[in-house]
Design a protein around this nucleic acid. Structure first.
Lengths: 216, 216
DNA sequence: GACTCATGTTACCGTTGGTAACTTAAAAGA
DNA sequence: TCTTTTAAGTTACCAACGGTAACATGAGTC
């Protein structure tokens, strides 16, 4: 949200890095990561395209910065949402897919880069991995907490975690790529449809036979 | 698998269209859709890059053709797998995520274009929509069949379908983008891990309370 | 008030996707 | 069998792109 585009006459932009990230995310949300060009982006920010190289070593590095920013924000939003819920383990678990979904709806550009982009150079992308792992750890810890409290069936936590992450991420990305319309009855309130499907799925996992999730 | 690269001296290639699709898919599998260039692709096929425009009106149109080809092949593989199973509705349903996963593992390039690519021009992509809808219809019909046979809980078929599609697609694409490693205990035999998680999820859905899936 | 250096600029490069005009050879008609 | 048509290649060219080198500006420090 940094509206640092205020002084067009100034030689120095002021906050070009964040501005570029925000502008790029908006463009990616519309037409994908393949579409945007550094030149158009820089022009929109009021600088030449070469100025971008002061903040990102390459176009791919800008994408990596967007991904890292996204993982950090997602993790922060998830942690904040859980914070407000005290020690109700089940509620703390259920708030995660909801936050995940809202993050995708609010910042689809970030989401797309985080999950749909194929990195040609893994090294540039390494910075994002840490923040990403934290977000996943949050889910796994919540699952373990629920298992310890007897709210979720015992067994391999990784299986349950994978199933929950899978259905959440799957519905979110299918919706983002417009491919959920086919299976959805009404287009209106798609977020409600997804959210209720997620809740039903989590509930089904909750009451399921522990034997299902035991490692074979 | 058309190995039409046999006659390098010939002026006419013979089967350039299919060759380009196969080569592009292989390149996309390695480094994503943003990476490959028409010129490199054409050179690999033994022609100049302008020759590609005889078969695809643009780079994006080639991607759309890959997607359409993918949806057709996925649907055909799913239908063939179900064919062999007669009237066992539950087995016919369970074979779908397995086929879906195998398709992703066998042709990751196709899968990436089908589900992770953002289309800048929807018109070019329209051809793929039909084949895509058929694949989804196959799942929804199997769910309805299971419900009619009393194998799956009654209720809105669209919810159950969305949940199953979601967990299947979610785990497949998380694995494809390398983001499932974090939540997985052992890297070896990841396909087994995913497949068993999918089976456990479907089983959890099967024995769940019908009230969960009723439209609200 | 001079120095420093982060942050801009212009000039330029090879490569890319795409168009126009021409060439080749396989198939169709007489 | 010879001519004609046409699908499928070619070379020549273009503007735009990502990226590099060398230079310019101006805010903060001593």
């Amino acid at each position: 949200m940094p509206a640092a585009k205020a002084r067009p006459a100034a030689y120095h932009h002021g906050n070009l890095r964040d501005t570029l990230i925000a502008l790029a995310s908006a463009r990616i949300a519309k037409a994908g990561a393949a579409d945007f060009t550094l030149r158009e982006l820089a022009a929109e920010a009021g600088v030449t395209h070469v100025a971008t190289y002061r903040h990102f070593s390459s176009r791919e590095a800008l994408l990596a910065a967007i991904a890292a920013d996204g993982y950090r924000r997602l993790q922060a939003q998830e942690a904040a949402a859980q914070e407000a819920l005290g020690t109700d383990h089940w509620a703390r678990l259920l708030v995660l897919p909801e936050t995940y979904l809202r993050f995708m709806l609010d910042t689809p550009g970030h989401f797309h880069v985080m999950f749909a982009h194929r990195w040609s150079d893994d090294a540039t992308y390494d910075e994002a991995i840490a923040a990403q792992a934290e977000s996943f750890a949050l889910l796994e810890r919540s699952v373990a907490d629920c298992q310890a409290a007897g709210v979720l069936p015992a067994g391999a936590a990784s299986r349950l975690t994978a199933a929950m992450l899978g259905v959440t991420h799957g519905l979110a990305s299918l919706w983002l790529s417009g491919q959920l319309d086919i299976v959805m009855p009404a287009r209106r309130r798609a977020d409600r449809f997804i959210l209720e499907t997620l809740k039903a799925s989590f509930e089904a996992f909750r009451v399921s036979d522990p034997e299902l999730w035991r490692a074979k």
